[in-house]
């Protein structure tokens, strides 16, 4: 009971900032999952990836140098950050996630755990 109130309070004291939902592609092959996310305007140092329990969160802040005194006249990208979370399944090895950020595209590779790799099962004929 105590734990629940703690969690609720924490959530209330740290309001989550509004963020854009980046477009992603998720492709699964026998060895694992590859995720591509469009994060234009996010430099490497403003990208934040974290895995907590079985939730993978991608967060990035847009950092674009803007000339002084610029007035926006037409805005399609209206928020300065992206955020998206995914629930990982337990056959994925969250400890071996590799990430690359290139021209505003994040590529994440999440391999499947050893025990979840496909195996051919021999059928014994007896």
């Amino acid at each position: 009971m105590n734990d629940t109130t703690k969690v609720a309070r924490q959530a209330a004291s740290a309001p989550v900032e509004a963020a854009l939902l980046p477009a992603v592609d998720v492709i699964e092959d026998t060895g694992g999952i590859t995720l591509y996310a469009d994060l234009p305007g996010v430099p490497r140092e403003k990208l934040n990836l974290h895995v907590e329990a079985d939730t993978l969160t991608i967060e990035g802040e847009i950092a674009i140098p803007v000339p002084e005194g610029m007035e926006p006249t037409h805005v399609e990208v209206a928020l300065p950050r992206y955020r998206r979370a995914f629930t990982l399944s337990k056959e994925l090895d969250a400890g071996k996630v590799s990430a690359e950020l290139n021209h505003g595209v994040l590529k994440l590779r999440i391999p499947k755990a050893e025990h979840a790799q496909p195996r051919r099962i021999q059928v014994a004929v007896g």
Partner: peptide, 20 residues
């Protein structure tokens, strides 16, 4: 790609969000 446009007294600034 999404485009943001801004203006300053000396220039027009266009930001085209075209990753990858």
């Amino acid at each position: 790609p999404a485009i943001n446009v801004g203006s300053t007294p000396k220039s027009i600034e266009l930001y085209t969000f075209a990753p990858g």
